[in-house]
Design a protein around this nucleic acid. Structure first.
Lengths: 233, 233
DNA sequence: TAGGATAATTGACGCAAATCATGTTTTTAA
DNA sequence: TTAAAAACATGATTTGCGTCAATTATCCTA
């Protein structure tokens, strides 16, 4: 697989969490969080948090994969994919933004820990290390979103799809060969194109020897080639 | 003008700062910030911060207007407009992200205060109220960016341009009649369309009685109409 | 205040990609 | 095990909007 520097250039959808906020808590604080914390399991497709409902808890993905998307006028825009370690609902931390600013649903069966948002707010006030870690998470998410934003607005179909494939391989499955956990339709949603275009483009990639693909099993053949497609279009 | 609720629905480009972080500092901390702080004036068009260069200071816009944009492959994407009170460079707070993640340039003559980023980092660690305020700013920016993201990817030209006009009117000029401080080309960049399309679309808006316009002076005639265009397309 | 440069405007043209239509395969569930 | 429903696939058609080219207006500045 490519190195971190290369990986970071991707406009990718998954934010790699390299700092686990809760490590900065004191034993006492950890206990406080754990005492009140609840674990819930969601089945594939279920909604974990609905945009517009009150954010009483921050969600920590502990297993699985979730889709985080913004909704408006019955249309939706995928903001990011939340992998284990990701926090959902942080944007509701400001007291005047107390509802979820996006919807999250489970791509596959997913385990989530619910942590009271007021506890998080208190921890930010009282534990500087923790506050700093939360700031870092918000910044990393923002940076990643900028890349995705650019990708979806400035690239055309080939580039967009190549980017998503590279991103999935390197940040989610962490290998060149993987079974895609999603349908062509979801892949389309993710890359901001129509299902038909995704299918056609994938076929092209296969004909050009960039990938191999049978149904949902993918294999990246020409990594550099895909990167080049990414750059150009 | 429309009320706050309506205004917030806009996918707009300007984040309204309703919390001034530095108010939460103690007298001593304020002194620390002010002692080391430098004020710089930039002329229209000048670059205030260049993506990729080291972020030694956070920039606080105290007067003027700046364009914040992400660059890649000689193409650029405007992320937001920074108005007085806006902070630029916050995404460099994580120690492993110590370069500017975007470029900022002055739309008009602009006054900026430079505050050492290490001081900000220290304040986050030591002053919970301040940390919380910074978190709030990051969240608000993120929410606003999601809206803009949605607007640029899911709407077509009419909707995009209508949105930008409404946003400029309500969040920057704060009135229905204003002298646009930017060229058609810049308006195009802002709404993610070509200059020619902007011109054609503006003409349409005028013919449909939505706006009046002579050169750079604009007047919104039918606010609801524009909102409707925004919703539909 | 002339004239060179930049910005604004307009029309013609082309294309990327969405949509539509229709057929095939796979999955799901009864 | 079979019927219904998704998912996948592919060709034809449409269209929104960018690009190109040419013209007019406006802004500087020498």
């Amino acid at each position: 697989m490519q190195n971190t520097a290369e990986r970071n250039k991707l406009s990718c959808t998954v934010v790699n969490v390299n700092k686990y906020c809760f490590d900065f808590l004191t034993e006492e604080e950890k206990k406080l969080v754990e005492q009140r914390q609840v674990t819930v399991e969601y089945k594939k497709g279920e909604i974990i948090a609905k945009q517009g409902t009150f954010t009483t808890h921050i969600l920590l993905i502990s297993e699985g994969l979730a889709k985080v998307y913004y909704e408006e006028n019955y249309k939706s825009l995928i903001l990011r994919i939340a992998a284990p370690g990701s926090l959902i609902g942080l944007t509701s931390l400001p007291l005047n933004q107390n509802v979820f600013q996006y919807t999250a649903s489970a791509y596959i069966n997913t385990t989530v820990k619910l942590i009271e948002i007021d506890i998080i707010r208190k921890l930010i006030l009282n534990n500087g290390q923790f506050a700093s870690a939360i700031v870092d998470v918000l910044c990393e998410t923002s940076i990643q979103k900028n890349r995705r934003f650019f990708c979806l607005t400035h690239r055309q179909s080939y580039g967009k799809l190549a980017d998503i494939i590279l991103c999935l391989a390197s940040n989610i499955f962490k290998q060149d060969e993987f079974d895609l956990a999603m349908s062509r339709k979801e892949l389309a949603e993710l890359s901001g194109m129509s299902t038909e275009s995704v299918i056609r483009t994938l076929k092209h990639f296969q004909e050009d020897g960039l990938i191999e693909m049978t149904g949902k099993s993918f294999k990246i053949i020409d990594l550099n080639g895909l990167h080049k497609v990414c750059q150009l279009g």
